[in-house]
């Protein structure tokens, strides 16, 4: 243990195990790398404030202010919010009145479908992972492998039987159908991921609790689950991101009422025959990014805490 309490501990941050300290030098280095890495996203966000002519200008206009005359005129654009308003309502044909584009509905659909299916997958998948980890079945590895296999084929192969199945059962275009499909889509990763976390836990604490008379249910909720919070958070984030941006299933299996944003986005890109409307696409993507961005940001603490509960490793 270090003798002097670090700045982080003074601020009340708990130090995660295995995380060593570094100073502002590291911040500078990591900040540079992170900014370079973030640059393409930053350019999308900047583009969302530009009109079409400015988006295609050469040299690229990359900054909204002159910075007191430091930046020459050629590189400066005037920021506009027009793209953001036209995400939700714009005139579809030249000269026509502005009409609702339906994107408010698409955003609602994306949020409902992604969050419900990821939560379902997390609940079902965590239970299954715990089962695979602690109560191995006959042919445990075979089950796990078959589960993995379902993710190996391109979606296009599964899609035709699924379309037929949904048409017969009346599930196509309904929330239930797409949510079930996405739950199944998320399960393999959830199970494999959570199993690898459960496998890492030490069994000593669990056995001790059992000897003290705790039931298996209590052992799961009180001892195992708190130790894999990091894993749950990571799995949730990954599942959310994959489901949020899933395109092919959404394109073919959602109806007018259940359409999600990626489908709406691809239609907005293709529409009109006048080339890509860069500002509009960037505005949709920026808006679409915000919810996942904040969910990830708020789960980050859990994501990085690591396993701090029982470190009595086998």
């Amino acid at each position: 243990m270090s003798e002097t309490a670090s700045m982080w501990e003074k601020l009340g941050f708990r130090k995660a195990s295995g995380v060593s300290e570094a100073g502002w030098g590291q911040t500078l280095f990591a900040g540079l790398i992170s900014l370079i890495y973030f640059l393409p996203v930053l350019l999308i966000i900047i583009t969302s404030f530009k009109l079409q002519t400015e988006a295609l200008a050469i040299p690229p206009k990359f900054i909204p202010t002159h910075l007191f005359g430091l930046i020459p005129d050629a590189y400066v654009f005037t920021p506009t919010l027009e793209n953001y308003t036209s995400v939700f309502s714009r005139s579809m044909t030249a000269g026509a009145a502005a009409e609702n584009t339906g994107f408010d509905r698409y955003f609602f659909n994306s949020i409902v479908i992604a969050s419900v299916s990821v939560f379902l997958a997390l609940i079902i998948g965590t239970l299954a992972a715990f089962g695979f980890s602690r109560y191995p079945l006959k042919g445990n590895d075979t089950y796990l492998f078959v589960i993995l296999t379902t993710r190996m084929l391109p979606a296009i192969v599964v899609i035709i039987p699924v379309i037929l199945m949904f048409r017969i059962t009346g599930l196509s275009g309904s929330y239930l159908g797409i949510i079930m499909l996405y739950t199944a889509f998320n399960l393999p990763f959830t199970i494999w991921m959570m199993k690898s976390f459960f496998d890492e836990l030490s069994l000593d604490v669990e056995d001790a609790a059992r000897l003290d008379g705790s039931s298996d249910v209590k052992v799961f909720f009180k001892i195992c689950l708190p130790q894999v919070i990091a894993g749950l958070a990571a799995t949730f984030v990954f599942g959310l991101i994959l489901t949020w941006n899933e395109f092919l299933f959404a394109l073919l299996l959602t109806g007018v009422d259940t359409r999600t944003v990626p489908v709406g986005m691809s239609q907005a890109v293709a529409g009109g025959g006048i080339g890509v409307l860069w500002g509009l696409l960037a505005a949709i993507e920026t808006l679409f990014l915000i919810p996942v961005f904040f969910v990830t940001f708020f789960l980050q603490d859990h994501l990085l805490r690591g396993v701090t509960f029982g470190t009595v490793k086998r």
Binding site: V19, S34, Y37, E285, L289
Partner: peptide
């Protein structure tokens, strides 16, 4: 490693994955 502002830099690096 733990360093100041780590949280805010990490989310920047994670963003590309969140794009459609």
């Amino acid at each position: 490693k733990q360093f100041p502002l780590r949280k805010y830099l990490l989310i920047l690096v994670l963003t590309p994955m969140m794009l459609s």
